[in-house]
Write a protein that binds this DNA or RNA. Structure first.
Lengths: 382, 382
DNA sequence: GCCCCGGATGTTTGCGCTAACAATCGTCAG
DNA sequence: CTGACGATTGTTAGCGCAAACATCCGGGGC
């Protein structure tokens, strides 16, 4: 109604007036609909530029019911792994024209997870990625009637929850076997926090390797967290045991602390004790000595999780049938959206998406870690 | 109009019907407006619970023009500092009922920064925090007609850009002075990437300390990035110079690499060469030897940046005058919003908010780093 | 007893956009 | 030359919500 552009941000009607077309035609141009004469399109685009018009996302969302926003739940994005995954997720999301909203968990309990999910749903995210490697978090997430597609990443495989996981067990087994191959009678384990699935799986892999090779299975040293400090403190207990010649640590930070404790006690690494870590953080190569470790490809994990989620969203969205609605066309990478939208439903859930909110009950992908051998491991001296 | 709840998510009208009130009354209850009889409120809340009603954020945004969303631009959230700040920002945002959307920079150039800002503005964020410590990023951000409140964090002080900064120069000066106090004739510097303000400021602080004490100022070793690998490679050049007895590194990772290079060359740390870092990452204490470093309080930085941004938003928002609109009351922490909304405008800009988008031209806060002395530094042997 | 006032609630309107339908224009087969 | 058809554009309706205004009701001052 207002004729004067009284300081308010321009809206579509303003653009329409300037371009001399109807508001709907402006909408068509913006959404890259067919059947707009090139000349008209140009006029509209010029008007948009002239006015500095910017579409109102809320209004569009209100009618299309699409927010183009994904949520990421994470417990502690300060750790290298989660930070890397978050980063990779955002990068990938951008390419698919999605926004990423983060929700950090205040604490690791049902209430916090619930609140985080609620928070994201309040913002109407189209899907959620949970970077929550703790057992508790996974359980809670799996039990949560999310109402939106949900993918967990780096948290093992759990029924009723789509997941992109690292094969921690295989990695741990490989690391342990490697130490046994070097001639160690057995391998001790400095475990991660028992509440984390990664910790559990790595311990399981370590046990399996020892059992398979007929080696004794010493009591693992239970870690409280993933920090170097903990590694150091447990290390002081480990040094008391002269029979320890090889230790598989649940992550690199623990290994760092352990190495320090060993050295403080006058034990040489690797000549007297071999140490192996997990993750291959960038610093690991420069520990003294350089750390043999199991590398995880966090970027790949993040990327795959995102793809899995988008596929899941594609198969949920009831508006997907027309196909043309796939191109929300804001910046132009509609092609990639289309490809996901079209291959997703066919490949994943068989197109049968039964009304209810889809949440594939199977793991989506498993990424394999690789052993990186460096100076912190060596043949034992007998 | 629809009588049957045909599978669609319930809307306010559905709640109203169930509660036997008008839709507007439901709205009043949700927004914690006065003048609703307690009994009515209870009926409405029960209906909400019964239906599992969830307010539609887009619709609310459309009419209130508030998205309750903030954007965070960051170049690399994998690094410890940025990751910590992002984490702190999210935690603080949650308490003030804001969502946080992240936008990672694809590359460090004008175009990428511009795109990130545009991306966030497309999503109608109410304000932006830039974690962009590079000189280039700051310049671009400062020059950008953001259209929304913008606060930079950890990026020095720049006119025309609100900023929450660490006093890198003071920290570097302190570290350098400390080494001089120990008796070192001079202190060498392993610099960070020149494109980062932090690197520049730390180098400046180092220079200033040397000059102030009348010590020689050797050519700094220019770092390409912040990694241990770079520290190691530069370290191999440093070991060639037997006169080096103390090195101030621009961050902890560089220091780690340097220490490794020194040890590989048979130089003892700290007996022959003292090394000092910057940041105090959690691992630093467990480097071999434990690293003396300058601690930054990233959490505090993030928190302050968020507060500065919210204050800035408060002084921009034209709807703030009524006061009652401050409580968008979704989860109940309306109190904190109210306090910000009311103290912000008064305390910051004196209530005179002159129409145009506010962007305070002055630094908002400076956080002081502290020296943490550990084993990697010692008196030189003469 | 009448009027006025303020608390409680209802009704109407419009935020900016897209979907669905309607209208217009030119073109081409018959 | 006419009618139909497709390409292009316009018109109307409504997404879910909150603001503004209207209405209703009970109680107190006179």
């Amino acid at each position: 109604m207002q004729i004067l552009a009284g300081d308010r941000a321009p809206v579509m009607a303003d653009v329409a007036r300037v371009a001399g077309v109807s508001q709907q035609t402006v909408s068509r141009v913006l959404n890259e609909r067919p059947n707009v004469r090139p000349a008209t399109r140009v006029r509209v685009l010029e008007a948009i530029r002239e006015l500095g018009y910017r579409p109102n996302a809320a209004a569009r969302t209100l009618v299309t019911r699409r927010t183009n926003t994904l949520g990421v739940i994470s417990f502690n994005t300060t750790l290298y792994g989660p930070a890397s995954m978050l980063y990779a997720i955002e990068q990938a999301a951008k390419q698919h024209d999605y926004f990423v909203t983060v929700a950090a968990l205040a604490a690791m309990d049902r209430r916090s997870v619930f609140e985080a999910v609620e928070r994201l749903r309040d913002q109407a995210v189209e899907g959620i990625i949970g970077i929550a490697p703790q057992t508790a978090a996974v359980k809670i997430l799996a039990a949560m009637p999310a109402g939106v597609p949900l993918v967990a990443v780096g948290c093992g495989v759990h029924a009723a929850l789509s997941a992109v996981a690292v094969d921690n067990e295989a990695g741990a087994e490989r690391a342990t076997s490697y130490l046994l191959d070097l001639g160690h009678r057995t391998v001790h384990h400095l475990a991660g926090p028992r509440t984390w699935l990664d910790a559990q799986e790595r311990e399981a892999g370590w046990r399996r390797a020892l059992t398979a090779r007929g080696a004794a299975t010493p009591e693992p040293f239970p870690g409280g967290d993933w920090s170097a400090r903990t590694g150091y403190e447990l290390g002081r207990r480990i040094v008391a045991d002269q029979s320890v010649t090889a230790v598989f640590c649940a992550n690199d930070h623990l290994a760092l602390g352990l190495i320090r404790a060993l050295q403080a006690a006058g034990r040489h690494v690797p000549d007297q004790v071999s140490v192996i870590g997990f993750d291959d953080i960038p610093d690991a190569e420069f520990f003294g000595p350089a750390l043999t470790t199991v590398r995880q490809d966090f970027d790949e994990l993040g990327r795959r999780a995102l793809l899995a989620l988008i596929r899941s969203i594609g198969s949920t969205g009831s508006t997907g049938s027309t196909g043309s609605t796939g191109s929300t066309g804001s910046t132009g990478s509609a092609g990639s959206i289309g490809s996901i939208g079209s291959t997703g439903p066919a490949g994943a859930t068989g197109g049968g998406a039964r009304g209810s909110t889809a949440r594939a009950a199977n793991p989506v992908a498993v990424v394999n870690p690789t052993l990186v051998v460096r100076a912190s491991t060596a043949r034992p001296r007998h």
